[in-house]
Amino acid sequence: MTVTTTGGGPRGTAVSARPAPRRGAGALGVLGRVWLAALALAGWEIGTRQAESVFFPPPSAIAARMYEQWLTGPAGRVFLTDEALETFGPSLARMLGGWLIASVAGVALGLAIGRSRALADYVDPLIEFGRAVPPSALVPLFMVLFAEVTDMQLATVVFGVIWPILINTIDGARYLDRLHTDIAQVFRLSRAQRLFRLMLPAAAPKIVAGLRLGLSLSIILMVVSELVGSTNGFGYELLDSQSLMDMTRLWGIIVVLGILGYVLNTTFLAVERRVLSWHRQAQQTT
């Protein structure tokens, strides 16, 4: 489904019977959507300039600092400085690594548990307990258990992220359409076909929702895990700025984390739209 935005050409009036696109068209539409953000930014700038507080530097100063700190590197690597690479690299690796491990484990376990009533009855209390434990509470434990700091951080991310993925997958796999399983049995679909052509796609809408929740959790847990005993990454940078009372740098890291979360979520949504296009369309027509 593509929504084409026409700039009121000769056929502009002819198609007026069609439902108007929900979002505004063209440059005016973009302006209509960002004006509030621009206003907020302007307000922030003016407010902080008036206040002249060391704790609240103006956004222009934050942006300048971010640029100087991270984007003044060689052109060959998109201007990223060494400091940027040393911060973003390890943090993203922990976050995405932990999310991937949790995704694979969560989906595999979830499908098995979702398809077996007996197994579900056994492990349900365990899952309920496990998800109720705040992952941050386990950081001290993981610090003792794992000699390597990176392992501790990965474990923290995995442990926090796996629950929504696991629970959503169980839910998706549990309620397969009876007629679909009948078809699979009558036509003797193989185990692999049942898994990849029936269970996974049928559970996909729920699984994807779990993966998205997990992704946003993984940012939080990445930072939390880096606030202890780390020597690089966003969490370490935050602590370091705090101890140096370098508030502009501290704010810069907060802004970057916000941008990172936004970009990840937007990317994920774009992928989701492609992967689940059958689901959206089938919902619309039936």
């Binding site: 007629l179 009558v186 052509r197 996909a204 059958w278 039936t286």
Partner: peptide, 17 residues
């Protein structure tokens, strides 16, 4: 060697393939 055609056609095909 058995095939079945069910009444509820809207649910008997897999919508994702």
């Amino acid at each position: 060697d058995l095939a079945v055609v069910f009444q509820d056609y809207s649910r008997s095909l897999f919508p994702w393939v």
